[in-house]
């Protein structure tokens, strides 16, 4: 995040630009009133993914619920023009930062990468990707290997139940 200069009113925090995509159809955790949520509707991207109408409708409905700004275009041509138009209203100076959540899907990753290099893109972690984002597994040959480590990190028994009083807790709930 760009630092604030001493003569800027701290109560007028600059609005930020969040680039939403199909793995991040939510307000960021640190969203503030005035921030912009922008979604780029690229028909070629959808065609490449070969997604059905029902999936596209679902995505559009999510965007409507977010009151996101939906624009038609491709990243390469859209962002430079849009940022030039928005620079003053965003109050971030001449080079606004575009915040975008990380993507996992290779097609989506490639599409995001078509954003021109002159655009200041800041990739943020995506909380929807992993239950335990910090776990760095070393054994992935089979799920059982992974689950042993994940279960330990979660504090649950990998197999069966622990010797605790879970049965009693369950009975208590039904009384």
């Amino acid at each position: 995040m760009s630092s604030l200069s001493s003569n800027v009113n701290l109560n007028q925090t600059p609005a930020r630009l969040f680039w939403l995509h199909d793995e991040a159809l939510a307000k960021p955790d640190d969203y503030r009133a005035g921030d912009k949520l922008v979604y780029l509707w690229d028909a070629n991207y959808f065609a490449q993914q070969a997604w059905s109408l029902k999936r596209r409708v679902f995505i559009y409905e999510c965007l409507v619920a977010l009151k996101a700004e939906i624009y038609v275009g491709q990243p390469a041509e859209f962002w430079p023009v849009f940022l030039a138009q928005q620079a003053q209203s965003l109050g971030q100076g001449s080079e606004p930062i575009v915040y975008v959540a990380a993507a996992l899907d290779p097609v989506l990753q490639a599409w995001l990468a078509t954003c021109p290099s002159e655009v200041k893109l800041e990739v943020t972690s995506n909380p929807s990707h992993f239950l335990l984002p910090d776990l760095q597994p070393t054994r992935l040959k089979r799920f059982s290997h992974f689950w042993s480590a994940q279960a330990k990190a979660l504090g649950v028994p990998a197999f069966g139940r622990s010797n605790g009083s879970s049965k009693h807790k369950r009975l208590r709930k039904h009384q």
Binding site: L104, H129, F130, P137, L140, F143, L154, G155, V156, P157
Partner: peptide
């Protein structure tokens, strides 16, 4: 639920983590 009782759900969510780790690798 207790953590023990939530084990099955956590395991299913972990399958997703597992697949994502594999795909990234």
């Amino acid at each position: 639920q207790s953590l023990d009782e939530a084990q099955k759900l956590l395991q299913q969510l972990s399958w997703r983590d597992y697949f994502h780790h594999l795909a990234q690798l």
